[in-house]
Simulated assay, not measured.
Amino acid sequence: MDSWIIKLLVFLTSFLAMEAVAWLTHKYLMHGLFWFLHEDHHKKDHPGFFERNDFFFLIFAIPGIICLAMGTLYQVDLALYIGLGITAYGAAYFFVHDIFIHQRFKWLRKTDNRYFKALRRAHKMHHKHVNKEHGECFGMLWVPLKYFKS
Rank of each mutant, 00 (worst) to 15 (best):
Y81R: 03
L33I: 13
M18E: 05
G83N: 03
L73S: 05
L68H: 05
T72C: 11
A91C: 11
F116N: 05
I6L: 15
R120M: 07
I86Y: 06
Q75D: 13
N131C: 10
T25L: 10
H26K: 02
L9Q: 09
A118L: 04
V130R: 14
M30E: 03
D40I: 11
L73W: 08
G64L: 04
A92F: 10
L24G: 15
F15Y: 15
G83C: 07
K7H: 13
P47C: 02
H134D: 14
I59C: 07
A79C: 13
K132M: 15
F49S: 05
G48C: 09
W23D: 08
R52P: 00
F15E: 06
M30W: 08
I65W: 12
N131S: 14
L80N: 02
G64Y: 01
M1Y: 11
L141I: 15
E19P: 04
L73Q: 11
S3M: 10
A122M: 13
Y89C: 00
I86V: 13
K27I: 00
A61L: 14
T72I: 14
F138Y: 15
D2S: 15
F55S: 14
E39W: 04
Y28I: 01
H31Q: 07
K106Y: 07
H127Q: 05
G139D: 07
L37E: 07
A17W: 10
G135E: 02
F34L: 15
L24I: 08
D98P: 00
D45M: 05
T25M: 09
I65G: 13
A17D: 03
P144R: 11
A91M: 15
K132D: 06
P47E: 14
Q103A: 10
K106A: 12
A92V: 11
N113A: 09
L80Q: 02
A61F: 10
L16Y: 07
A61Y: 03
I59A: 14
W107E: 01
G90T: 04
V10D: 01
M70K: 14
K43I: 11
H26P: 07
F50M: 11
